[in-house]
């Protein structure tokens, strides 16, 4: 399945890009995160939540959409 992955804030700094298109065969969000960890090892140190088709989901969720976003919390004000 082809997935479009969007990176926000500090995550985009780790991946050095704001968007990826990847071919992924796994079933769950957690498997996808593992795959991204091996692609971008520094991602392990980052704190983020995952959205699937514009909806925040838990990492146990099955992959049902093709648009994923990695969203870090921001502190600044």
């Amino acid at each position: 399945m082809q997935l479009r992955i969007k990176y926000f804030g500090q995550i985009a700094e780790v991946t050095q890009k704001e968007e990826d298109t990847i071919e992924f065969q796994g079933a769950s969000i957690s498997e996808l995160i593992e795959a991204l960890y091996s692609k971008y090892s520094a991602l392990k140190y980052e704190n983020f939540q995952v959205a699937q088709n514009q909806e925040l989901v838990s990492i146990e969720s099955k992959i049902t959409g093709n648009e994923i976003a990695l969203l870090p919390p921001f502190a600044g004000g």
Binding site: F8, G9, Q10, N47, Q49, L56, P72, P73, F74, A75, G76, G77
Partner: peptide, 28 residues
């Protein structure tokens, strides 16, 4: 909340809606 060139906005705890912990459960 803001970071460099990016911002996030939401309204929490309004009309039975979610709170910030529903988005980010605990402080980094």
């Amino acid at each position: 909340a803001i970071y460099k060139f990016e911002g996030q906005v939401s309204v929490f705890n309004y009309n039975a809606g979610p709170n910030y912990r529903c988005l980010f459960p605990s402080s980094p």
